[in-house]
């Protein structure tokens, strides 16, 4: 579905001293049905990579293709197709939900997009769809009439997930979806994402610094360090026989309970 082809992303003026190379010659294939985990410490470029997949940013060099078509700001048609089938859950629901909108408006926002409606690929009845997705994420129908600040962190992330599900996407991008949440609700939200990915046959791209989270949800892993892919493969292989020294150090840093 996605082909990331020798992508480099540099922030700041090129070749100046302050330039930051967030991604350096990254090549990656994401196939339908994959559950891909992107792992790395902060500053490794994992968020930059997922923003490129979401069409929120463009590569400095190389290209990102979605269903064979090159993603380009100036190509609204491809971008609309991307947005109709690729949705994203952000890290912090306190920032990703507009505080001045009611939950019903927030969740149905993708359905009211003219560009997405023109693709003909999204549900056409916002009211019915709103009730469906609220139910799927385990929120009462009455939530639609309330504002985001009236909910807890975990519930707010459920609202953000409901919004991502509303246009009936094929691919779900999640950028550190639980790291801003209380430890006590992380497992619930992770289980919700797992259930939704399974029942709706979604392709999942999950960014996290937390190897335990990746292991819980993903079957493929990409390890990023300083904007480069240092290791990739099936989750089982990477976890049991890490090849790169960086992966080994990441795995060694995971706290374990004594057996």
């Amino acid at each position: 579905m996605f082909e990331v082809d020798h992508v480099t992303r540099t922030f700041g003026r090129r070749k100046s001293e302050t330039a930051v190379q967030a991604l350096d010659d990254v090549t990656l294939d994401i196939k339908s049905g994959d559950r891909l985990g992107i792992v790395g410490e902060s500053g490794s470029g994992k968020t930059t990579l997922v923003r490129l997949l979401a069409g929120l940013d463009s590569p400095t060099a190389g290209e990102v293709r979605f269903q064979g078509a090159r993603l380009d700001r100036r190509d609204p048609h491809t971008l609309a197709r991307l947005r109709a089938s690729v949705q994203m859950v952000f890290q912090d629901p306190r920032s990703s939900l507009d505080p001045r909108m009611k939950v019903g408006q927030i969740v149905t926002e993708p359905l009211r997009s003219r560009r997405l409606r023109q693709t003909g690929a999204i549900p056409t009845d916002p009211k019915t769809r709103l009730a469906e997705v609220l139910d799927q994420v385990g929120l009462p129908a009455a939530a639609a009439a309330l504002y985001p600040h009236e909910f807890s962190g975990g519930q707010r992330q459920r609202i953000a997930i409901a919004r991502a599900l509303a246009p009936n996407p094929d691919i779900l991008l999640a950028d550190e979806p639980v790291s801003a949440l209380d430890v006590s609700v992380r497992a619930q939200v992770l289980n919700l994402i797992t259930d939704l990915v399974t029942t709706m046959h979604l392709t999942l791209v999950l960014v996290s610094h937390d190897l335990a989270v990746i292991r819980h949800l993903c079957d493929q892993v990409v390890v990023l360090q300083h904007g480069r892919i240092v290791e990739q493969g099936s989750a089982d292989a990477v976890y049991s026989h890490p090849q790169a020294a960086y992966t080994k150090s990441l795995l060694a840093a995971v706290p374990r309970l004594p057996d």
Binding site: R51, F90, S95, S96, D98, M101, E109, P110, S113
Partner: peptide
């Protein structure tokens, strides 16, 4: 700089609509 602007872009909302719906009220 807030994520709900990116969320609106991912939702396929055009720049003028983002200005009216998200920027002006906030």
């Amino acid at each position: 700089a807030l994520d709900y602007i990116d969320a609106a872009r991912v939702a396929g909302i055009s720049a003028p609509a983002i200005a009216l719906r998200h920027v002006v009220p906030n």
